[in-house]
Design a protein around this nucleic acid. Structure first.
Lengths: 233, 233
DNA sequence: TTGTCGGCCGATCGCCGACAA
DNA sequence: TTGTCGGCGATCGGCCGACAA
């Protein structure tokens, strides 16, 4: 997926991806400790060392086919210790060689994220569209219509297109998604606490990405929370 | 699973399972040709031979955890060619040594199979219980009630219990499953042409097994069939 | 005896404005 | 501006007898 989408979906709390040709340390034991699946195809010699100086030879951006969660694949090559200086290992924010990430087309992408409320995630319910999202991302409604309404076609990070009925109604007036939203929540298995990120590129095409809630106690109904509290004391 | 259930579910067209200690021929190439997954852990020497005389050392009965389809695991041990006679390789119907299959408790099991009609398989619909099934397998209804009705608890081949509302009604009167049937069809992903087999052991406990339809053109709606016919000419 | 259909009733889905935070 | 709720209309699941094969 394009780096610009990755940035928007990873969110502000995510670390900036490393830059191609920058130098980093690889900690084999830390990798083993934190990785969900064991690293493969690495010689036992690698594991015997506490730290290995490396050069970032490639950074690629992906979205998980099942969960839509974004992640990176970072290709590392070991380098001789003598050929580097301490400065090379500082967190790089600008390319130290060939303004990298294989993505020169870093056009501006407007994005708007929202954490889903229980009402948003409730199946059969709709989605309260944040005002900023409607103004910045979606095509303007014709407010002479009563009610103003349009059907949006928004692409997810795998290229699948989702349709949402976008309507401006109620008292006081507000932007809502109705038809299509429920199917999206169901398909993506979204629960309250998760986030959706709506994006628009310079051509006006709209995209939607997800960020799953990592806090374990969230995404439960009030009843479930109380029940859990009772069990855990 | 018990051999008696396996027999009932495999049906009359299935070959009788081999008997323990009987002698059979193993055809490696035939195995490779017909098996869905390649046989493993066999030395290349085995594949080089067209046929290998074997002794059946174990026969075990299983039901696929996902599809409920019954199958056998037959453990073979190669035997020296000289130690056998032609008679040993005839299809055995009675044990040639130690009345086998590890299942002496072959009590009588009453069973009744039915091929599902479109109406049976239609989600939201019921199930027309064959008269023989109601008479032979299920507990008798109290025909003084109006309508006669009971809830049956029937165990599948994995030990899961399913509830069916069994009612005798309509004009003319007939046996039907209503509540519970739809969920069963959905969970087991049954389509018209598949079969259900109801069984009762000597203790009166009821069981249900499945047999999937192997004919490829079946299980389609009329519209789908016509459409397929049109494409295929 | 049993396969298929139309009717119909109740449950659920999902759209709505009201209201308050 | 927007989260939650109750209302309620449309849709669908699923139970029913009629009727014919």
């Amino acid at each position: 997926i394009p780096a610009k989408f990755w940035r928007a979906c990873a969110g502000i709390s995510a670390q900036e991806p490393p830059v191609v040709n920058s130098r980093v340390y690889y900690f084999p034991q830390g990798h083993i400790d934190q990785a969900a699946s064991k690293p493969r195809n690495l010689s036992p010699l690698v594991y015997s060392k506490p730290v290995i100086p490396c050069r970032v030879s490639a950074v690629n951006f992906f979205a998980d086919p099942n969960t839509d969660e974004v992640f990176l694949k970072i290709l590392l090559h070991p380098v001789a210790v003598g050929s580097s200086t301490a400065q090379d290992f500082l967190p790089a924010t600008e390319g130290s060689g060939g303004n990298g990430n294989g993505n020169g087309n870093d056009e501006k992408v407007q994005s708007c994220a929202k954490i889903l409320t229980r009402t948003d995630a409730n199946l059969g319910g709709g989605f309260s569209v944040p005002r900023a999202c409607a103004d910045l991302i979606f095509p303007p409604l014709n407010f002479e219509d009563d009610p103003p309404v349009q059907t949006l076609r928004i692409t997810d990070l795998h290229g699948a297109v989702w349709e949402f009925r976008h309507i401006y109604r109620g008292t006081p007036k507000r932007h809502l998604f109705t038809s299509g939203w429920s199917k999206f929540v169901d398909s993506k298995m979204l629960i309250s606490g998760d986030s959706v990120i709506f994006m628009k590129d310079s051509d006006g095409r709209m995209f939607v990405g997800l960020r799953r809630n990592m806090s374990p106690d969230d995404g439960l109904s009030d009843g479930e929370s109380e029940w859990l509290d009772a069990i855990l004391g």
